[in-house]
Amino acid sequence: MPEAAIHLEAIRFAYPGAERPLFDGLSLEVTPGELVAVLGPSGVGKSTLLNLVAGLAVPDAGGVDVLGTDVTALDESAAARWRRSNLGFVFQQFHLLPYLTLAENVALPLALSGREWTDSEVVAFLERLGLADRAQAYPRHLSGGQAQRAAIARALIHRPPILLADELTGNLDEETAAGMLDLLTEVVAEAGATTLVVTHAPEVAARAHTRYRLTHHNLHPEP
């Protein structure tokens, strides 16, 4: 078996002041190129799980290894550099920068990683997502679905080895969501991206190679 791309071991995590831990003994292995979905209702800790993988949250106990890096050992600046090189992250709240156009927002990971690109490359990627005609629009002029697709485009455009997605299709209509999932599985297949998606939507989880349900502080395999 290949070495895990994402490995969480015996994670314990509690928010300050909480009566009990959110996670207690949680472990997870994701192999390179695998698409894993974690199902669960709001409030169960799905977003926190992604934040632990990304080094945006630090466990009270246990280990987080991603692509051979001990994420818990990185200081803030080192973690930021590591994320720019290795992660694409689709946040539930989009986090588009209001002073940048849609195209500039999507190209941001290319700029931060120091990679050269052309405007036509960005527009071609937006075309695949049905956003080419909105390339020069600012976030305040986008619908919720357009903003969601822009956030997904930004996470995927630099072909990261690890993709994390929080409620990937939460604000999309059924047809657009299906297209988004097609693109996701295409990128996983083309680039071998290791993908961890947290969702409450069975149709999203159905695209995954492996599924878990997050309940009672831990992960349980789903058929």
Rank of each mutant, 00 (worst) to 15 (best):
E116I: 06
W117F: 15
W117C: 07
W117V: 12
T118E: 12
T118D: 04
T118A: 01
T118P: 00
T118R: 13
T118Y: 00
T118G: 07
T118F: 04
D119C: 02
D119K: 02
S120T: 10
E121I: 03
E121M: 06
V122M: 08
V123K: 12
V123T: 14
V123P: 09
V123R: 15
A124K: 12
F125A: 08
F125V: 13
L126F: 13
E127A: 13
E127N: 07
E127V: 11
E127T: 13
R128E: 09
R128N: 11
R128G: 15
L129V: 04
L129C: 04
L129N: 04
L129W: 02
G130K: 14
G130M: 10
G130L: 11
L131C: 08
A132W: 05
A132F: 04
A132G: 07
R134N: 01
R134S: 01
A135S: 04
Q136W: 07
Q136D: 11
Y138Q: 08
P139F: 00
P139S: 02
P139G: 04
P139V: 02
R140D: 06
H141Q: 09
H141W: 01
L142E: 03
L142Y: 00
S143K: 09
G145A: 05
G145S: 05
Q148D: 06
Q148H: 05
Q148R: 05
R149T: 05
R149Y: 10
A150K: 02
A150T: 01
A150V: 02
A151I: 06
A151Q: 11
I152N: 02
I152P: 02
A153W: 04
A153S: 03
R154T: 01
A155K: 01
A155P: 04
R159Y: 03
R159T: 03
P160W: 05
P160S: 08
P160T: 09
P161T: 02
P161S: 05
I162D: 00
I162Y: 01
A165T: 00
A165P: 00
D166W: 07
D166S: 03
E167K: 01
L168D: 12
L168H: 03
G170V: 11
N171S: 14
N171Y: 13
L172R: 14
L172N: 14
L172D: 12
D173V: 13
D173P: 15
D173S: 13
E174Y: 15
E174R: 15
E175R: 15
E175T: 15
E175L: 15
A177L: 12
G179W: 10
G179D: 14
G179S: 11
G179L: 12
M180Q: 14
M180R: 08
M180F: 09
